[in-house]
Amino acid sequence: MDAIDDAILRELTVDARLPYSELGARVGLSPNAAANRVGRLVADGTIRAFTIVRGGAGAAPGPGLEVFVEVRLAEGTTNEDFTDALARRGFPHVLDAVHVTGSYDYLLHAVVTDPAALDLFVRRLKREAGVAQTFTRLAMRA
């Protein structure tokens, strides 16, 4: 780890969706060099998981159905493919996505407006985010 790696980690902590071109510009590297550095940080375990959080710590989920969706990725779908799909394809329902141990790969915390929106959300996960199987729980109360 050097000063550039530290700068990369600071930038990704603020915005993990930064394109490599922007990340590189912010830390003084070319896009390819920034991508290589991030890849090395993942490979050496410095970056261990990609987590998406909306609304900041302690934010209230807002109106609607609060759900917890366990997700099993389809064969051939990587963690990066999944988290990129959540970030790029517009899954605003997701408040948090945590890579977990056990029979499922991720636990999503989300808020949807109603059962129809939940159905659409789960179908989109399967169609657009490389999800093979889900198990959904509704929060009864906080």
Rank of each mutant, 00 (worst) to 15 (best):
D2T: 05
D2K: 09
A3R: 07
A3C: 08
I4H: 07
I4K: 12
D5L: 04
A7P: 11
A7V: 02
L9N: 08
L9S: 04
L12T: 06
T13K: 14
V14I: 14
V14F: 08
D15W: 08
R17I: 11
R17Q: 10
R17P: 11
L18N: 01
G24Y: 00
G24A: 04
A25Q: 10
A25V: 08
A25K: 11
V27D: 05
V27G: 05
L29I: 09
A34W: 07
A35K: 11
N36H: 05
R37P: 01
L41H: 00
V42I: 15
A43S: 10
A43G: 08
D44S: 11
T46K: 06
A49K: 11
I52L: 15
I52W: 00
R54A: 13
R54S: 12
G58Q: 03
G64T: 04
G64D: 01
E66H: 13
V67C: 00
V69S: 04
E70I: 00
R72K: 15
L73Q: 01
L73G: 09
G76K: 05
T77I: 12
T78Y: 04
T78M: 02
T78K: 04
N79K: 15
E80V: 13
E80L: 09
T83S: 12
A85L: 03
A87F: 05
F91I: 09
V94F: 01
D96P: 00
G102P: 10
S103Y: 14
D105I: 08
L107C: 07
A110V: 02
A110C: 09
D114Y: 01
P115M: 05
D119N: 15
V122N: 11
V122D: 13
R124H: 03
L125H: 04
R127D: 13
E128M: 01
A129R: 02
A132L: 09
A132Y: 03
A132M: 06
Q133C: 06
R137A: 15
A139T: 14
M140R: 13
